[in-house]
Each structure stands twice: as structure tokens, then as C-alpha cells.
């Protein structure tokens, strides 16, 4: 007599999938700016892949139509237009992605700023949230905004 599977129904897979790494509202976790940084890092990474692909395609004018066409195209790009606006967004993504990337390298590979293990005591705040990496995170947010504003000045007012 064979042993029958007693579970008659099927199980529901409750995996969130990519939604969890793109939407910050998918799982609500209090006291967690690192997750916001993680989501922004993913989104800016996807944006940068698109930007670099488009940038390589758009800068092949000299190979396609010669150097005169290239000079004409560059002269048309001055001031505020849709291309410079897209460029501004891509530069913001680049600023955040690079600065946050340096922070992640420090924290993930050198294990810097995550505190020492301790005996948990009320109100149960883990040591990695009390460590220096929180300050690094705020510095990364502030620096990327400053760099983005500077990029905007260069693109819109000096270009």
C-alpha cells in the first residue's frame, strides 16, 4: 500500500518578486532609510544603463555623417531643452549611484560603521543602526543632492 500525499490542496506562493526591490511601499518597514537607498540605487542603476546605451547611440554622429554634422548638433544643444533635461536627470542618477556605491563598498566589503555585537537591551535598536554607516548614508544623500544641483548649474546656466 503506497503512502498517499495527505495534503490535498496546493500552496500559494506569496513571493513578492521584483516588486519588493522597486516599490518602497510594498513592505512597510519603520526606521529604515537603507531600504530607500537600496531602491534608489536599483532605479538609478536601471536609468544609467538606459542613459549609457542612448548616449553611445547619440554620439556616433561623426562616424555616421562626418565632423561638420557633429559640430552643428552640439551647437543646437545649448540652453534648456528636452535633451538637456534628460541629461540633467541622468546626471542626478549618476551622482547618487556613484556616491552611494562608494558607501556600499565601505560598508559591505570592509564591514565599516556597523558597530560591535552587543547584548540586546530595550528599546532593541540593532547596533548596525547605531553605527557610523547611518551618518555615511545621510552624507551620501546630502552630497548627491549638492552634486546634482551643481550639475544643473553646469548644464542649464553655463551650457
Amino acid at each position: 500500500m503506497s503512502v498517499k500525499d495527505r495534503f490535498l490542496g496546493r500552496m500559494l506562493d506569496n513571493r513578492m518578486g521584483l516588486k519588493a526591490s522597486v516599490s518602497s511601499w510594498a513592505v512597510r518597514v519603520p526606521n529604515n532609510p537603507e531600504r530607500l537607498a537600496f531602491i534608489l540605487h536599483r532605479l538609478t542603476g536601471i536609468l544609467l544603463v538606459g542613459f549609457i546605451t542612448l548616449h553611445i547611440i547619440s554620439t556616433n554622429t561623426p562616424a555616421r555623417a562626418g565632423w561638420e554634422a557633429w559640430v552643428e548638433e552640439v551647437e543646437r544643444l545649448g540652453g534648456v531643452n528636452i535633451v538637456s533635461l534628460l541629461f540633467f536627470i541622468a546626471m542626478g542618477a549618476l551622482a547618487f549611484h556613484s556616491i552611494n556605491g562608494i558607501r556600499l563598498l565601505l560598508v559591505e566589503f570592509l564591514a565599516l560603521g556597523i558597530g560591535r555585537p552587543e547584548k540586546p537591551k530595550p528599546p532593541y535598536i540593532p547596533p548596525s543602526f547605531k553605527g557610523f554607516q547611518r551618518n555615511l548614508l545621510y552624507i551620501a544623500f546630502a552630497l548627491s543632492i549638492i552634486v546634482w544641483i551643481a550639475m544643473g548649474y553646469v548644464i542649464f546656466l553655463m551650457g
Binding site: 529604515n32 537603507e34 537600496f38 540586546p120 540593532p126 548596525s128
Partner: peptide
């Protein structure tokens, strides 16, 4: 990728 949500929800810290 150090989203650190695990530490934020852990009931035993």
C-alpha cells in the same frame, strides 16, 4: 545589498 530591513523587523534584535 544591505537594505537592512532584516535588522529593522527582527523581534529579538
Amino acid at each position: 545589498h544591505f537594505a537592512a530591513s532584516c535588522s529593522a523587523v527582527c523581534p529579538k534584535s
